[in-house]
Simulated scan of single mutants.
Amino acid sequence: MTSRALIRPAWTPATIALMVGGFMIFWPLGLAMLAYILWGDRLDGFKRDVNETTDRLFGGLKRAGGGSPFGAPRTGNVAFDDWREKELSRLDEERRRLHEAEAEFAAYARELRRAKDQQEFDRFMAERGKRRDEGPVVDGQPA
Rank of each mutant, 00 (worst) to 15 (best):
K62M: 03
R114E: 04
A143E: 05
E93H: 08
L91H: 07
K62L: 11
T54C: 05
G76I: 11
R110W: 00
F105H: 12
I25R: 04
W11K: 11
E127P: 06
L38D: 00
R56S: 03
P9A: 04
Q119E: 07
D133V: 15
A14G: 08
N77I: 14
R113C: 03
A107R: 13
A106Q: 09
R48E: 08
P136D: 05
D81Y: 01
A32P: 08
M125P: 00
E120C: 14
R114L: 06
R48L: 05
A126P: 07
W39F: 11
F58H: 04
P9I: 09
R74G: 07
D117I: 12
R97M: 12
V20M: 08
T15Y: 04
A115I: 12
F70Q: 10
L112E: 03
L88M: 12
G45L: 13
P142H: 08
L34Y: 00
S68E: 06
R96T: 12
P136E: 03
R56Q: 06
L38I: 15
A143G: 00
D44E: 11
S89T: 13
G59C: 10
D55Q: 07
D81Q: 01
F124C: 07
F23N: 06
G76V: 08
A101S: 06
D117L: 13
P142G: 01
A143P: 08
W27V: 15
K116H: 05
A103Y: 00
K86F: 02
A79C: 03
R131F: 01
E134N: 12
E111M: 11
E104K: 14
R131D: 01
Q118W: 00
R123I: 08
Q118R: 14
L38N: 01
E104H: 08
M24C: 14
D49Y: 02
F124E: 01
A109C: 06
E120A: 14
I25D: 00
P142I: 13
L6Q: 07
L34M: 12
A103F: 00
G59N: 09
E127N: 12
G60D: 02
V137H: 00
R114Q: 09
N51K: 10
D122F: 03
L43A: 13
A106S: 06
E134K: 15
S68R: 11
E127W: 12
L29V: 11
A35M: 09
T2M: 09
L112R: 11
L18M: 12
G21D: 00
P13Q: 02
A17D: 02
G140P: 09
G67L: 13
S3R: 15
L18A: 04
M24I: 15
R128Q: 07
M24Q: 07
I37V: 15
L38C: 04
A14D: 07
I25C: 11
V78S: 00
A79R: 13
G67A: 11
E52M: 14
G45P: 01
S3E: 04
S3L: 15
L98N: 09
D139C: 09
K47N: 02
A10N: 03
D82C: 04
F105N: 10
R95C: 01
E52Y: 04
F26N: 05
L29Y: 04
I16G: 01
M19L: 14
E102H: 03
Y36G: 05
E100Q: 07
W27T: 11
L6Y: 02
V78F: 00
D82G: 05
G140A: 10
G67W: 02
R114H: 04
A115E: 06
L31H: 03
G67M: 11
G45W: 07
A5F: 05
A17P: 06
V138N: 01
E85P: 03
F23T: 05
R56A: 05
